[in-house]
Design a protein around this nucleic acid. Structure first.
Ligand SMILES: [Zn+2]
Ligand SMILES: [Zn+2]
Ligand SMILES: [Zn+2]
Ligand SMILES: [Zn+2]
Lengths: 149, 149
DNA sequence: CACCTAAATGAAAATGATTTTCATTTATAA
DNA sequence: TTATAAATGAAAATCATTTTCATTTAGGTG
């Protein structure tokens, strides 16, 4: 989603388009990595000191509720976020070295989902799928080779 | 895995089999739900007051490292744990109403994983998959029907 | 069985992340 | 421009997790 689309969605939902929110959205869009609140806060420091960490938290919650960003689940830190490129069903491939995220579509989990629903009596309404690994850049770098293949 | 198997693994790894650890393992085995440290601590209170929350944390970390339990990722609370029934590749179907978890095998994500690796240059080493929904019990209960179908 | 020792425990303090509170500022509509 | 509700930032409060350290204990040894 473009900054423009995001701005439109916020307006439609009755939220104000503040420069803090714009800045946070920009940081997310500019990064190909998953970022925590603290990461985003750190990246704002140069251009927008003055923006408080609280505002980052609040903005992320807002964007999340509005379905404007993706969430990523890594080992310990549950809460890292990602710019949602388009509003289609997709999942993420995540580099555990540098945090880079590649989106992909075509999970084809519907059949499995149906089978499970039938077998268990659950009404399944969504699924979480992620692949974890190392990107080519991290594979090539010396440091990563030494620490864990 | 049975309590017996778990105990054996701990011994093999040079850890002591304390009654606190036994109690925590029992709570996990007895529950068909995913539990946080605090959940486990609460369930210990009756039979084993005296066991400290710190010990729960430490024991979970230990069991985790030894591959004796499963982790589950839900919305906010990232860290909840689950008894690992068997040491085979499987995933979880989770009830968002009551926390009940059903294991399943046969994810068949290898082809997708290969395709992604080829397309992106990533070396993929694992994946996370979970289905979320409501179990039949929760579907039937009045409260759940009123709050969210 | 009694003894020894490293490992494990619990209480309290420390840390870190997230949320709440509240006075001040600001985007937006009239 | 003005009015107003929404948004912000600083500080305090809360909650989860980890560290510290003195004490206890499991499990091996004689
Ligand atoms: Zn990388
Ligand atoms: Zn999917
Ligand atoms: Zn349920
Ligand atoms: Zn799988």
């Amino acid at each position: 989603m473009t900054g423009r689309e995001i701005a439109a969605t916020l307006k439609r939902r009755g939220y104000k388009l503040t420069c803090q929110r714009r800045a946070i959205i920009d940081v997310l869009s500019a990064s190909g990595k998953h970022l925590t609140s603290a990461d985003i806060y750190a990246r704002l420091k140069d251009e927008h000191p003055g923006i408080g960490l609280v505002t980052v938290y609040r903005t992320l919650e807002l964007l999340q509720e509005s379905g404007l960003l993706c969430e990523v689940h890594i080992g310990d830190s549950c809460r890292s976020y990602l710019n949602k490129k388009a509003d289609v069903h997709h999942h993420h491939l995540i580099c555990s070295g540098c945090g880079k995220v590649v989106d992909f579509t075509g999970c084809e989990l519907d059949k499995l989902q149906e089978r499970l629903a039938a077998e268990t009596g659950f009404k399944i309404d969504n699924h979480l799928l992620q692949f974890m690994g190392r990107c080519s850049k991290c594979l090539a770098s010396k440091e990563c080779q030494s620490c864990q293949s």
